[in-house]
Design a protein around this nucleic acid. Sequence first.
DNA 1: GACATTATGGAGCGGACGCTACATAACCCC
DNA 2: GGGGTTATGTAGCGTCCGCTCCATAATGTC
Lengths: 197, 197
Amino acid sequence: MSRPRAFDETAALDAATDHFWRHGYTATSVRDLGQAMGLGPASLYNAFGDKHALFTQCLDRYLDGSMRERIRRLEAGLPPRAAIEAFLEEIVARSLADPRGCMLVNSAVEVAPHDPGVGAVVAGRLRELEGFFARCAAAGQAAGTISRAHPAEDLGRLFLTTVMGLRVLSRARPEAALLQGAARQALALLDTPEREH
Amino acid sequence: MSRPRAFDETAALDAATDHFWRHGYTATSVRDLGQAMGLGPASLYNAFGDKHALFTQCLDRYLDGSMRERIRRLEAGLPPRAAIEAFLEEIVARSLADPRGCMLVNSAVEVAPHDPGVGAVVAGRLRELEGFFARCAAAGQAAGTISRAHPAEDLGRLFLTTVMGLRVLSRARPEAALLQGAARQALALLDTPEREH
DNA sequence: GACATTATGGAGCGGACGCTACATAACCCC
DNA sequence: GGGGTTATGTAGCGTCCGCTCCATAATGTC
């Protein structure tokens, strides 16, 4: 019925995501995106809408492929305490290996405060991550592998905060001793001896 | 000898800082800055150099007036454990009250990765903050007000990470329960019962 | 008051910005 | 192979970007 697209949509989105990820929203121009995606402006606007709409598609794809994938994989494949430990380990390893940092953090800082739509997406994903940690903490406490000294809700809040902090620190101080030390110290909360009563 | 400046340099720098703080480096134009500072472009460039030089002056002033001021005040006026607690409390209160977030975090995420000069400044200030927490932790342990269950270096690393994380979370989820819960949980590390041996 | 020096306002440089219009090309359906 | 429909390349819209030039103004020195 009509002429088909001459490019791979997912490859184009991946290229756009990489560009937003590296340079942020404002510092990325539509011309940059078109070049990275191998598209002229007409094709870009026809397929993905304007710059803002393209960014939200990239952010959604990024979050599905990184954060949600990790939550699903670890929660399904590991016991709760190990899932928490593995999450932090992966975050540290990624922070040390990938200079692009975390697109969720980048968006929370650069875009979310000025963009209610992106702000809602970011807030929702942060709640998902907090929920993962809180669920694992509660399950580990029920299974006896995690100390009951602290409420699971607060553990979830602190692990979420720790992940965000690690991702920020890695942009200016990508040092293994720093990131591993912080993660180790957060995980120590899982072993707090319980006071006798 | 020559015509004097017709504007207050510190007030102009404060106005520029506020603009960079709210909108970030890239999204702030020199015209915006000139309008906020009450200066024409000629005066602005003559007094402060180009946009990048002005930004670094704003960032330095901001850090001296917020982070360094807080470290100095708390470390001089409070015992070590209380200094740590007060720092986190102030960060939470400020995060809930001021929608601009933390300019150090903003700069670490937006500017530092693409700018070695700013990156060095940010890394240095992060080290100062880590040092404050580590010093307080060690002093508190020596005074007996902080548990010796964890090494002071790791406590410093985690508190630094926690502050960074709180500052990120507050941009998308400025919720008292979340930020206070995370801070409370981090501070619980100061009370870890020591295992008998 | 003439002079040297710095500050200021305004005009404007070349280029990049996000985005659009339009003619043409490539496909499916019949 | 014509017709309908969508995709694509190019040219270019109006605006804003960082920054500079230049004529003029305001000061201290003598």
